[in-house]
C-alpha cells in the first residue's frame, strides 16, 4: 500500500537521500483538492451568512422589531413583533407539551421497562420517526388537528403537531442522558433504603439535567427553524395577540413562515427587504441558541 513513487524508486537503482524531497503528483493533486474542498465549504458558509446579514442588518431597527405588520401596501406598519410573539408562543407551548411527556417516557423506558425486544422495537420506531420529513407531519397535523379535531389553523394545532415531531428526539436524547448516569450512584441510593421513585427523582434525573437541557435547547433551535409544519397548521395570520390564552386558538405565522410568505408571495415593494431583515433576525436567534447549546455541552463535559 505504498505510493507509486516509493515503490518504483528502488527499481531504477537511483539512490536518493532520505532528506531529499520527492515529487508525488498524486499527493499534490489530492492535497490541492482537499484544500479546495475546505475552501469551498468555508466560502459557502461565509458567503451565505454575509449575504443574509449584509442585506438584512441594515433594515433591522427598533421600529422593525417592535411594531405590528399590515398587509396593505400603503400602511407604514411593516414590523415583525406579532411574528416574534408567535414564535415565542410556539416554542414555549411545544416544549410544555413535549418535554414532560418525553422525559417521563424516557424515564420509564430506561428505569422501569424490562430491557428486551419490546424496548428495542420502540427505539427503532422512534429513530425512524425522527427521520420522517416535516412535511409529512404537516400533512398529518393538518388532517388530524386542523380539520379532524376542528382546532382550525391555530397555534394549538401547530404546537401539537410540532410536539409529536420533536418527541422522538427528546425521548432519545433524554434516554442517552439518563443512561450515562453511573449505575453505582443508583445502587448506592438503593442500598441506603431509598425507593425506586426517590432514586429516580433524587439521583438519576438531577444528574441528567445538563444532558436534558442540551436536548431542550436543540429542540428550541429546531422549532424556531421549522417552517413546513407551521405554514400548514398555524396558518399565516399576523394580528397582534389580544389575550394571553385566547391567542392559542388564533392563527399566527412564525418568523420562518413570515420569511417564506414575504419571499414567495410578498406583494409590497419592500417585502424583499422585510424578508432579508427577518432572515437576519432568524440567523442571529439560531446562532445564539447554537452557542448556548455549545456552552452547555462544554459544561457537561467538564462536570
Amino acid at each position: 500500500m505504498l505510493s507509486e513513487a516509493a515503490m518504483t524508486a528502488p527499481k531504477t537503482g537511483e539512490k536518493k537521500s532520505l532528506y531529499e524531497k520527492k515529487r508525488h503528483p498524486f499527493d499534490l493533486c489530492m492535497k490541492t483538492l482537499i484544500y479546495l474542498s475546505a475552501a469551498i465549504t468555508v466560502t459557502l458558509l461565509v458567503g451565505i451568512l454575509l449575504y443574509i446579514l449584509i442585506n438584512g442588518i441594515g433594515h433591522i431597527s427598533w421600529e422593525f422589531i417592535s411594531t405590528e405588520y399590515s398587509q396593505r401596501a400603503s400602511s407604514p406598519e411593516k414590523g415583525i413583533l406579532p411574528m416574534i410573539i408567535n414564535t415565542v408562543y410556539v416554542v414555549v407551548l411545544t416544549l410544555l407539551i413535549s418535554v414532560p411527556i418525553g422525559v417521563c417516557a424516557a424515564v420509564y423506558l430506561t428505569q422501569y421497562a424490562k430491557q428486551g425486544r419490546l424496548v428495542s422495537a420502540i427505539r427503532f420506531a422512534t429513530d425512524t420517526l425522527a427521520g420522517i420529513p416535516s412535511v409529512l407531519f404537516a400533512l398529518f397535523g393538518m388532517s388530524i388537528f386542523v380539520s379532524g379535531f376542528g382546532f382550525g389553523y391555530s397555534i394549538l394545532s401547530g404546537c401539537l403537531t410540532m410536539a409529536i415531531c420533536i418527541l422522538p428526539t427528546i425521548v432519545r436524547t433524554t434516554e442517552e442522558a439518563l443512561l450515562t448516569v453511573p449505575s453505582s450512584y443508583q445502587e448506592g441510593a438503593l442500598a441506603l433504603g431509598a425507593g425506586k421513585l426517590r432514586v429516580t427523582m433524587g439521583i438519576v434525573l438531577p444528574c441528567a439535567v445538563p444532558g436534558i437541557l442540551t436536548a431542550v435547547i436543540l429542540a428550541m433551535g429546531r422549532i424556531v427553524g421549522e417552517s413546513a409544519i407551521f405554514l400548514f397548521t398555524t396558518g399565516t395570520g399576523y394580528d397582534m395577540p389580544n389575550s394571553l390564552f385566547g391567542h392559542i386558538m388564533a392563527a399566527g405565522r412564525t418568523l420562518t413562515v413570515h420569511l417564506y410568505t414575504m419571499a414567495k408571495d410578498g406583494t409590497a415593494e419592500n417585502s424583499l427587504e422585510i424578508a432579508f431583515a427577518t432572515s437576519a433576525v432568524l440567523l442571529i436567534l439560531v446562532f445564539l441558541l447554537n452557542r448556548l447549546a455549545g456552552a452547555l455541552s462544554k459544561l457537561l463535559r467538564k462536570g
Binding site: I101, C104, Y108, L109, F137, P168, G195, K196, L197
Partner: peptide
C-alpha cells in the same frame, strides 16, 4: 406512591410511543 409514579411514567411512555405508532398507522 411508588406504584402511582410508575403508572404515571407508564402512561406518558404509552402516549409518546402511541403517537409514534399512530402516525405510522394513520399514514
Amino acid at each position: 406512591v411508588e406504584r402511582l409514579a410508575e403508572s404515571i411514567f407508564l402512561v406518558f411512555a404509552c402516549v409518546s410511543v402511541g403517537s409514534v405508532f399512530f402516525i405510522m398507522l394513520y399514514m
